[in-house]
């Protein structure tokens, strides 16, 4: 059984004057309908790049893309990386949709929200302009915009940030897509609005049985909604596992460090935060060896300075839990004092 989306060895690079930026390097993941995959990373980790490639949104004249991303459609699988651009375009907005971080700049300021939603609908449906606007009002109502019928003719700037993101979601879902890619959908929003939007995405996912890819830097958001997590660092996936495995049995020092470095509202007391020293790597001319090695506290635990000479493979450490590290699960649990069996 293959999943709805299967990404295999997807690499995206951009040539620049300073050298080749390997923004996404040999990335593989999959997500099924009804499932939420979170892709976590800091800025410059390449977490959005592979998904923009799936959507076909990179400038074909600049981006160098290799690998494959198969959508298992009812009438046979399609590799959206190698398929003709025109074919991929006919999948956008219909089979796969995407919403973005900043809902203000992502909506056209000169067109009413109804107009913009109707435009997406009429691409794949026959119907008059009035049908489109009626469908838009229906969608606005579905995503929880009060008195949707009166608001279809309003312009994006007349909505608040949270309402704009709802408009974006309505537009993305107007043709019942099977895959929704949400790129930092709540980062620009206030925290009380964030929880509204996350709840909405979860409800709609259930209703339409969608596959959801959530791109985020916020591990709290991940814990709230994800089923499976890919952690990215330096353009590569360093860990890929189920949600509980990532949070309680992480097999990668970066994930462990990240979890330790964030303050939590539920943990009182002014303990000192355990910061990860150093800076994230540049994606140009990555050094040999593990990209995280310069910041890793466990480098000395690996024999023969392997970490700085050789890049570890993304290996299955325990059942369905992949990590890119030379350390074995027993070593990790001794070093972090975690009990691999706990929780």
């Amino acid at each position: 059984m293959s999943k709805f989306l299967e990404v295999k060895n997807l690499s995206v690079s951009f040539p620049t004057e300073d050298g080749l930026v390997k923004a996404s390097n040999d990335v593989s993941y999959s997500v099924d309908r009804g499932e939420t995959l979170a892709i976590v990373g800091e800025s410059g980790s390449g977490k959005s790049v592979s998904n923009l490639a799936i959507m076909g949104l990179h400038n074909a004249a600049i981006a160098q893309i290799s690998g494959s991303a198969w959508l298992n459609l009812p009438d046979g699988p399609v590799d959206v990386i190698s398929a003709p651009a025109e074919q991929v375009r006919r999948l956008r907005g219909k089979v796969m949709s995407m919403i973005f971080q900043d809902p203000m700049s992502s909506l056209h300021p000169y067109y009413s929200v109804g107009n913009q939603i109707a435009e997406a609908w009429s691409l794949y449906n026959d119907g008059s302009k009035r049908d489109g606007m009626a469908r838009a009002a229906e969608m606005l109502d579905l995503v929880g915009i009060p008195s949707a019928k009166d608001r279809v003719k309003d312009f994006p700037h007349q909505f608040s940030g949270g309402m704009r993101q709802r408009v974006m979601i309505a537009m993305a879902l107007v043709n019942n897509p099977s895959l929704l890619i949400a790129d930092e959908p709540t980062t620009a929003l206030d925290v009380t609005v964030q929880s509204q939007i996350l709840k909405l995405i979860q409800e709609i996912q259930k209703e339409f049985n969608m596959a959801v890819i959530l791109i985020t830097h916020d591990l709290g958001v991940v814990a709230e909604v994800a089923d499976r997590v890919c952690v990215m660092y330096g353009g590569k996936i360093v860990e890929n596992a189920g949600i509980d495995e990532i949070f309680y049995k992480s097999q990668h020092p970066y994930t462990i460090g990240l979890l330790d470095s964030i303050p939590r509202v539920d943990k009182l007391g002014s303990h000192r935060l355990k910061a990860i020293p150093g800076q994230p790597p540049s994606l140009i001319g990555l050094p040999t060896g593990c990209a995280f090695a310069p910041r890793c506290e466990f480098v000395s635990e690996v024999a023969g300075s392997q970490c700085t000479t050789q890049d570890p493979e993304l290996a299955e450490k325990t059942s369905d839990h992949f990590a890119r590290c030379f350390l074995q699960p027993e070593q990790i649990s001794t070093l972090t004092g975690r009990k691999a069996s706990a929780k």
Partner: peptide, 20 residues
């Protein structure tokens, strides 16, 4: 602009994106 990327993500053709 982000909204042009949105237009592309909707599946609009390049011609329509430019014109509209």
């Amino acid at each position: 602009e982000d909204y042009i990327r949105t237009a592309r993500a909707k599946g609009l053709s390049e011609k329509v994106i430019l014109r509209k």
